[in-house]
Design a protein around this nucleic acid. Sequence first.
RNA 1: UGGGGUAUCGCCAAGCGGUAAGGCAACGGGUUUUGAUCCCGUCAUGCGGAGGUUCGAAUCCUCCUACCCCAGCCA
Length: 560
Amino acid sequence: MSDTAPTKSKHFLETIIEEDLASNKHEGRVVTRFPPEPNGYLHVGHARSIWVNFGLAQQYGGVCNLRFDDTNPEKESQEFIDAIQEDVRWLGYEWNGDARYASSYFDKLYEWALHLIREGKAYVCELSAEQASEYRGWATKPGKDSPYRERSVEENLELFEKMRAGGFDEGAASLRAKIDMASPNMNLRDPILYRIRKVEHHQTGDKWCIYPSYDFAHGQEDAIEGVTHSICTLEFQSHRALYDWFVENLPVPARPTQYEMGRLNLNYTVTSKRKLKQLVDENHVAGWDDPRMPTISGMRRRGFTPNSLKSFCEMIPVSAKNNSDVDVAQLEKAIRDDLNEQAPRAMCVMNPLKVTVINIDEADSGLEMKAANHPNKPELGERVIPFSETLYIDKADFNEDNTLSRKKFKRLVSGEYVRLRSAYIIKSEEVIKDDAGEIIELKVSLVPGTVGENVEGVKPRGVIHWVSAENGVKATIRDYDRLFSDPNPDAGEGDFLAHINPNSLKEYEGVVEPALAAAKPEDSFQFEREGYFVADRFDHAADKLVFNKTIGLRDVWSGK
RNA sequence: UGGGGUAUCGCCAAGCGGUAAGGCAACGGGUUUUGAUCCCGUCAUGCGGAGGUUCGAAUCCUCCUACCCCAGCCA
């Protein structure tokens, strides 16, 4: 193996896991977890987190848990839980055992809160949220102790029980860890462990009216599940001290470690759950799974494949240092590559212009054209495309002006030749216009002997796609573009909604070749010269064809 | 101006004292019945700035500068 091929360099998590495996830190176990809060749909960023956590477990013979971090019932719902599971499965990952819930550890967490109280390390504080904020101090100013900080263990036990039993109003009391109000790390200034929320929980019903905070729950959940490598994003770095504090001060069954990695941002899109929710709630899009949404379900409906999302993740290095602002072109590259390999080719005319072949009787190769389903993969077979006296080509593929240079316009112009893809070469003979001067029809002649052949003296300017008007099938084409026209819709003071691209969805009533009538929802095709399209997951039916544009073909010419 | 982080090509990023990987984008050229794919080539004397140590520094030291995170009873 004297290969000169560049080897993909290991990222920091792989290095850490390999070191841990080598030192037998966790008896050879690798347990990761993907811990979404069920308060929204998963997006690209989550896709990467899923890929990292499940991928690492797979790579090192470990397992990955799916755990719903459902400690805040106010924002969560079963709808999101169901959607999240569907997304993870669709990506092709299988979690270890049943899905877990932070809420199923509430009893244990409560017991551990009691433990901290008994150790004198937690107390019930009756400062209001505003007061607590004042007491917390400022970044450059140490906080001061809560007047409730020195209550006796007995009193705290009693008061915490009162909290649990609903004896306090929301906000009237909280359980806090007694750490250090002067700590330079704000997270250590007596953080909240439990707060009162008199709302029903989607999993535990009305059993609880106090709920643990993220900080008090997450590390302990990891410990309970035997998670060895708890991977989160950079903004939790300053929480690591707290994570460790709980794990050190509680009789937890294991010692997990938190590692932080950079978040993934994409330009021309927003990936904050709050903003995605706003787009849905205010009907700027048709729902969480609108094909313009960067949600997993949206991308799925747009025609992205699990493989394309995974290869996208592989393209983006995992970094411990920065949140990365990745160019959407990178994502587009991933889906184009996958679909270029997989998608059968077909023809679709989005803006039909009628074409009449005046010498159809000279069709010496017959009227059944054969076309390969994939130009580079003969094993994918071929299909028959009916040719006929009347056809459709795209309006954009004809121009009356025959002074256009052959280099600049490789399509049909008056009096010249063009090749119809997989069929005859035709010559434009006559242009028919309506009263308004609009071109409504073309009369053309076909050149005999040009199916699969070239003939001396006939030089088509290019190759264009077409569909038989007599056999083609009507189809609705949804042409999606980026939802935002600004590379960074989040930037600045302005409202991100102001950057919504008004042309992110264009609908066409087009015509597709008859073979496409058999397309099933979620089947992908390359409509030649146009791009990749997918039969809509929900709206496409045998008697009502609906195709969504996943992504256009790479186009190095239109911009020039 | 507290604490925690980060600064390497337009974007992402490797590099861990021995003379700047790779991907995306971009730009040339070749093949082509998709202006696609594919192929071939170009793209940081430079690593936030200024000093210093060293035969040698993106890597070590010093001092600057910029940006991100933490002041929810959100995660």
